[in-house]
């Protein structure tokens, strides 16, 4: 396995609006547009979990989207990170006390980076992605390490038989 980390240079994101008020939501989209242009960092908004490395979630978890969020997360190939954008995604935010809000995204899937703000600004989202990149890289290293160990184990088993 190569040790070159392309992952950091080409993070593709999947954005899902859990139960956001659209505030953070549109700021995520604004990141793609000329003034912020996150494609500078190789970021593409894929819209397809199978292609994505970073799952960006805005808004908190409610009854119906719980399964959707988990489904999307599971469909992403490893290594992957989750960035919770905005305070609703972190804790449920101002809607924390609503009867249909179960809380932040971490109630359902592990969250790696929390971006505060109501609404989170494009700059904060960029910062969040940057923070996510190093985590992504760590996970990749761990993954290849694990694969290496597995391989070694297989070899060892092969030799013994």
């Amino acid at each position: 396995m190569s040790t070159m980390a392309f992952l950091k240079r080409s993070p593709w994101i999947l954005h899902y609006d859990a139960s956001s008020c659209n505030g953070c939501d549109i700021e995520v989209l604004a990141c793609l547009t000329p003034l912020y242009d996150v494609e500078r960092f190789g970021i593409i908004n894929t819209g397809n979990p199978k292609h994505a490395d970073i799952l960006m979630i805005t808004g908190g978890i409610n009854e119906l989207n719980r399964a959707v969020v988990r489904n999307l997360y599971e469909q992403m190939p490893e290594p992957k990170v989750v960035v919770a954008i905005g305070i609703c995604a972190a804790t449920g935010g101002i809607f924390r006390e609503c009867y249909n809000i179960a809380g932040g995204v971490d109630k359902v899937i592990p969250v790696d980076v929390y971006v505060p703000g109501c609404a989170a600004r494009p700059e904060m989202i960029i910062d969040g992605v940057v923070a996510a990149l190093s985590i992504l890289e760590e996970k990749r290293a761990k993954m290849t390490g694990a694969a290496q160990i597995k391989d070694d184990a297989r070899h060892a088993a092969g030799e013994s038989t």
Partner: peptide, 8 residues
């Protein structure tokens, strides 16, 4: 509108 709690 599916809610965690029915008929909130």
């Amino acid at each position: 509108i599916k809610t965690a709690e029915k008929y909130p």
